[in-house]
Structure formats: structure tokens, C-alpha cells
Amino acid sequence: MKNPYEVLGVAQTASAAEIQSAYRKLAKKLHPDLNPGDKAAEEKFKEVAGAYDLLSDADKRKRFDAGEIDASGAERPQHHYYRDFASSDQGNPYADASGFADFMDEDDALAEFLRRSQRTRANRRGQDLHYHLAVDFVDSITGATQRLNLPDGSTIDVKIPPGLVDGQTLRLKGKGAPGTGKGGPGDALIEIEVRPDRRFTREGDDITLELPISLTEAVLGGPVRVPTPTGDVTMSVPKGSNTGTKLRLRGKGAPRRGGGQGDQFVRLKVVLPKTPDPELEAFVSTWKGKDYNPREGAAS
């Protein structure tokens, strides 16, 4: 980097006031926002601003003069100027057409073009954009944040509120197409698809889960681990439970609109060991209750 005194064009003996005045003079010419179309202005301004940052700080200036530090690293870091936003495609609500309003009054092709472009630009709200987002069942119950990739390569982080249902549409204000003038952007409308879950099904605010239990657990009862959307809980299976027995976990369902939670129902399913067990066979054949017929009395 160049000598900061040379960059600002001041003598090494210059006073703080002289340094400020020299900087201002240069900055008025070189400030990128005062040169919206001049790409080189930014580089030059960075140099000038870096030199001023160094010399306007009495301590840094003293150390530089003493040779303790050099001018490298004095450049200002990458900076976004107003012009970067003012000329973006997002539309600049401050941009003013009065600088060429007289051209529009003429009767020629340019005037016609300008009039048309003003009409379409004048403060129109951007379009609403429609998207589709698939959400895991568990996330639809507990809520989550999910990233949505847009066709233009950008992303939106979509906040999934707890208790969302399949087919519901979320509206993200201002995430649609950009508007024109002061019209503001449209909204993003995101239709949510809740992916089915292997374990859970939902009916209203209640969730049902089918839970396999062993013969031992069915006959003798006991504690079992049960998955819920918010994590596993322990539930006690009562003695003598059967396939189809429904147990309720209060408040473990989906959030209710207006407060509270639905319930989770656990439907038990008694499952015998996968491979026939000779010991079990021997026991059942000597079991006193083996002649119990659950079909007795049922309509044929």
C-alpha cells in the first residue's frame, strides 16, 4: 500500500484539521455513492479511506510515523455501498423519475417507452409466488424450520408452526416477487404436504400409534417404551392387555388451535415370537384355559 500521506496529498507535518480537509476533498470526488456508475471509484476510495483511517487516529499515526506499523492492512474491508442496493433488481423505492419527466411529454418512441416503463413501475405490489414443501410428520407436530430452495437458486427458511396439517398453506409476507416503486414485494404461499409416517397416524388433534407388545407383556403387564413425536416415553401396559387395547397418553398429540394438546392413542398388538417356541407350545397344551373360545357367542 502507498504512503498514506501521499495518498491524501498532505505533508507529514499536516495537522489533524488539514488531514480531515484533504480527505473530505478526495472523498467528495471518489465516494462510490457519489459515482454510482464508476467501478474504479470504489478502489480509489478504499485507498483514501484507509489512509484517512490510519492518519486520523492519533495513536496509529504516531506508531506509523515511528515505523512501528506500516500502511498495509489499513484498507477498509469490503463494504456494501448504497449504490449496490439502489441499482439492484429488487427495485429501488427511492428512485425518482423527475430527472427525465420532461422527456415523457414528448411525442416520440423514447417518450412512449418511458411512459410505459413508468406505468408498469409505479408502486405495484409484487406477485404472490406459490411453492410446495414436503414436511416430515414429526416436524408437522412439533414445529421445525425447513429450508425451501427456490427456482432462482435462493432459499427461504420456512418456519413450520407446530400442529400443521397436510394441505395447509403458509403465507410468508414479503417473500414473493419484488414489487415496483413503493409497492413492496408479494408474498410466498407455501402449500405444505405432510409426509406419512410409518408409525404415527393423525386424526384431528389426536395421534395413533400401533405398538407391538410381547405375549409376556400382554399377560403380565409392565412398563414399555413408546415413541411419541416429542420423544420416547414410558407407559405401563396393564395386566391382561389384548391386541386392539387402546391406551391414552394425555397431551402427547398435536397442538390444538387455541391452546392445549391432543392425545396420543397407543393401540396394542400382541406379537408372538417369530419362530415357533417349543417351550411355549408345551406350556399352552397343558394350560388349563386352552379351550377358551373368543368366537363363542359372536354372531356367525
Partner: peptide
């Protein structure tokens, strides 16, 4: 005020 006019002009030029 002048800056907003410059940006309005630049926008019109881009569209043109």
C-alpha cells in the same frame, strides 16, 4: 434528491 434522480435515470437506461 439528486442521487435518487440519478438512480431513476440509471434504471430507465437499464430498461431501455
Amino acid at each position: 434528491h439528486l442521487m435518487d434522480q440519478v438512480h431513476g435515470l440509471r434504471r430507465a437506461l437499464v430498461e431501455l
